[in-house]
Amino acid sequence: MSLEVKNLSLKIGTKKLLSDINFKLGSNEVVAILGPNGAGKSTLFKVLSGEHRHYEGQVILEGKDLKSWKASDVAKLLGVLPQSSALAFPFSVSEVINLGRLPHSTGRVLDHQLITEAMSKADVSHLADALYPSLSGGEKQRVQLARVLTQIWQKNDLGERYLLLDEPTSALDLPHQHQTLSLARDLAKEGVGVLAILHDLNLAAQYADRIILLSEGLCVAQGDVKTVLTPQQIESLYGIKVTVMSHPEHHYPLVVAS
């Protein structure tokens, strides 16, 4: 099954933020959304996560229109990692991650086990007892990732699981950027569809199965990495000249400004 977007358009006031977007996210792939600032990437996420409801077109989750799903059921299938979170109250890291189990009622023994696993996946185990507001930006981002992971960690009979990541690497150092995205790859192998907004073209090229390019609310290209990341495409999208090379070992495209 899939998370599918059909003829999606969204207007706020008279401003058209998204026009006629179509794509399908399978439950075993990583898809990256790229595009300049203001292209409508975050708006698209808000539609997929049920925050904007006055759109035209359809969002179909596991064969059923998103609007006819119960919010509490969607939460069991769809995890959303926000760009940043405003939590200012002194929850400890493990308490924040525990909030990811809120849609489920599986008992604390299992919850605790899932939390421990998610913490180690997101490399925050050593922070378990630290207070969230005292963490650095990157640590906060990884804690939030662990929270979202515990939310969709287990398969359930409602359907396949999906993970939306809004710039998951924006505050992370190099090793953690790669750790996060290889985690996304692992999840895809387990049957979780991952949709990630990214700014780093090379990270997208290395980890995504497919890329969707957005510009001014329009989907200007989508497809596998090599067909989308061409010099012409990137130049028309971002307005800068680039050279696209092939990675010497892994043969995915490398984009360098020229």
Binding site: E51, A75, A86, L87, L102
Partner: peptide, 16 residues
């Protein structure tokens, strides 16, 4: 508790 994370986050956790 979920609302402390933010309203969007609470919504993503299935809360009306």
């Amino acid at each position: 508790n979920a609302l402390l994370l933010g309203e969007s986050e609470a919504r993503h956790l299935g809360i009306d």
